[in-house]
């Protein structure tokens, strides 16, 4: 418990410095948190877009469904494919008649005008995967038409992938820069206590004994920085959402990442852990060269 006494003394000695350190971590948490939320929102949007994309194959009327079975099993065995679903003309009819307007149109036909079809979902929508599947399908008999959105989808997918890569790069830059800021702040507190560190070394304290209080200090700073960062982030987002609602009438509170449950205990714990890790690695970084005086 001696070590906590050391930490307490460090706090007392470098009061203002503590505020700067906690503040820096809080700001970092706000930036990382906003980034995290933005990243989740983008990913959520991306996966929704991707989920909407599917390849639909319409079969020639009168072509026996049994003959299609081989093609379906072949497709199912491919790595790129998530799901293959055969939809008979009867199933399609049942689906469409749920809509009353379409029902009246369909009832004007003597028989069911809808074709048999196959819906294909891919694991990953890359232009290469789409091309491969299209080429396989084109070689098969009994296919009337293949729909997949064509070039537009491919372009959209390419843009989405670039966005993902940019988000990852920005995230890495944020983490590195915040680590450097935190470690430099802790370096300053070490500098403020260099005379004491010198005395500790003179009386024969081990490096571990000397470093431990600083590491704990970093962790404690991270803890408080994480909590403060979370609170500020929560307030900012709530103010933003109410302002947007007031100005434009748009209500985003129902949108995935902005739901109250998202700012739950889990997110709070995550921000605290992020803060603690920042403080911990920040202090480790700055203590690296404590040996050289």
């Amino acid at each position: 418990m001696k070590v906590f006494k050391e930490v307490f003394l460090n706090f007392k000695k470098s009061g203002f410095m503590n505020l700067i350190s906690v503040g820096t971590i809080a700001i970092t948490i706000i930036i990382l948190g906003s980034y995290f939320i933005a990243n989740l929102a983008v990913n959520h949007f991306l996966s929704r877009v991707e989920n909407k994309i599917e390849i639909v194959v319409f079969l020639k009327d009168g072509f026996a469904a049994e003959k299609m079975k081989n093609t379906i099993t072949e497709l199912e065995s491919l790595n790129e494919i998530e799901d293959v679903k055969f939809i008979s003309k009867y199933d399609a009819y049942q689906e469409f008649v749920k809509d009353k307007e379409i029902l009246t149109i369909l009832q004007s036909f003597e028989s069911n005008p809808l074709p048999d079809s196959i819906k294909i979902k891919l694991k990953e929508y890359t232009p290469k995967n789409i091309d491969k599947i299209i080429n396989i399908l084109k070689s098969k008999e009994g296919i009337e038409e293949i729909q997949y959105g064509g070039k537009e989808i491919e372009n959209l997918l390419n843009i989405l992938n670039v966005i993902k890569i940019i988000m990852i790069v920005i995230g890495i830059i944020f983490i590195i820069s915040s680590l450097l800021v935190v470690s430099n702040i802790i370096k300053l507190t070490i500098y403020a206590r260099r005379q004491d560190i010198y005395i500790f070394k003179m009386v024969g304290a081990t490096n571990f004994f000397i470093k431990m209080p600083f590491i704990l200090e970093g962790i404690i700073h991270g803890f408080f920085g994480g909590i403060i960062g979370w609170v500020i982030l929560y307030v900012i987002i709530n103010i933003l959402l109410t302002e947007i609602k007031k100005e434009t009438g748009l209500d985003f509170t129902g949108f995935y990442v902005f739901t109250p449950s998202f700012f739950s205990l889990k997110f709070l714990i995550e921000t605290i852990i992020a803060g603690i890790l920042l403080g911990f690695f920040g202090s480790l970084l700055s203590l690296g060269n404590i040996k050289e005086k």
Partner: peptide
């Protein structure tokens, strides 16, 4: 060594 130095100083 750096590791043993504190014990020398004691």
């Amino acid at each position: 060594s750096d590791r043993k130095l504190p014990f020398y100083r004691r």
